[in-house]
């Protein structure tokens, strides 16, 4: 090592990079073998794609928000594939735009939880001691309050906007990420390559980011997918009990809440948003499972 430091490190780096790459490819290959997971990924991609490209097919103001009372409560037809809602708007169009709110809040909440969780978990796990125990107490407290209730309380204290909802529903997931990352760090903190990095004078945050977090990517990814699903569910519940996002913004939960009164004569009204929620959330869950299975092939034959 001493004779040829440049060559040595680059070799090691190459080897490590190759290993990581092949490992990633391996996981991806295993993931692709899981038909359910691939199907979920395709479904989810379609939903995301639709939400992103909705503007190509519809005009947000005109089709998703503007009312057309004379056409209200129409059964599915060629013109309106999923029918129209109680205020005469095309349900398909609102479903597609509604995906935006759900995904934004879901991903926003999960990302927020991940970032805060990563920071707290890394600090706690890496440094240990008093900081660690304070952080763990905080996560204990947050774990004791059901996430949905905490979210509802926070949203009602502020405003039901996408930003606050993401924040409110993210907070309760912080604990989970903190714990995952902390225990991952604890298990590798004293391993040789981390000590080696420390020995060559790498900064703490570099070590945490490059060596430790990258190594516990897998459980984080699984939890991230699950978190998005759960939070989409929470948001729809919030809208359903009438505390959610402001009308006329299309949102699956408030679509369900609005349709509830008409449910008996026009059951198709609740099928669209209900199934959209089911599909989206189960896609996230199946993908999460798929990643887990791909990472731990013991579970699958």
């Amino acid at each position: 090592m001493n004779q040829n430091p440049v060559n040595g490190t680059s070799n090691a780096d190459l080897r490590k990079a190759y290993k990581r790459q092949s490992q990633g490819r391996d996981i991806w290959r295993r993931f692709c073998k899981n038909k359910m997971a691939v199907a979920a990924l395709i479904v989810l991609s379609i939903i995301v794609l639709a939400a992103c490209t909705a503007d190509l097919f519809w005009d947000y103001e005109q089709d998703a928000c503007a009312l057309n009372i004379s056409e209200k409560l129409q059964k599915p037809s060629r013109e309106h594939i999923l029918g129209t809602d109680e205020l005469g708007r095309d349900i398909l169009c609102r479903l597609v735009y509604g995906a935006r709110v759900s995904l934004e809040v879901g991903i926003g909440a999960a990302t927020f939880a991940l970032v805060i969780g990563a920071i707290l978990g890394s600090i706690g796990g890496y440094y240990g001691g008093r900081v660690d125990s304070i952080i763990m107490r905080v996560t204990d407290v947050l774990l004791a309050i059901p996430g949905l209730l905490l979210g509802i309380a926070i949203v009602s204290a502020f405003k039901p906007t996408v930003f606050y909802m993401a924040l409110a529903f993210g907070i309760s997931y912080v604990s989970k990420f903190t714990r995952i990352i902390r225990s991952a760090i604890l298990s590798i903190r004293d391993q040789e390559y981390v000590e080696a990095a420390r020995a060559i004078g790498a900064k703490d945050h570099v070590i945490i980011l490059r060596h430790i977090l990258l190594n516990c990517m897998a459980p984080i990814l699984v939890q991230y997918a699950l978190c998005i699903g759960t939070r989409i569910l929470s948001v729809s519940t919030l809208s359903f009990i009438g505390l959610g996002i402001q009308a006329p913004t299309p949102d699956w939960g408030s679509m369900l809440a609005g349709a509830r009164a008409y449910i008996r004569g026009n059951t198709y009204l609740v099928m669209g948003p209900g199934l959209a929620l089911l599909l989206t959330i189960s896609s996230f869950n199946i993908i999460g499972d798929g990643i887990r299975d791909a990472l731990d092939p013991r579970l699958k034959k």
Partner: peptide, 15 residues
């Protein structure tokens, strides 16, 4: 199980 985990409970209740 996957549907059960993902189903909005209030929707299930209405159904």
């Amino acid at each position: 199980a996957i549907c059960g985990v993902s189903a909005p409970t209030f929707w299930v209740g209405i159904m």
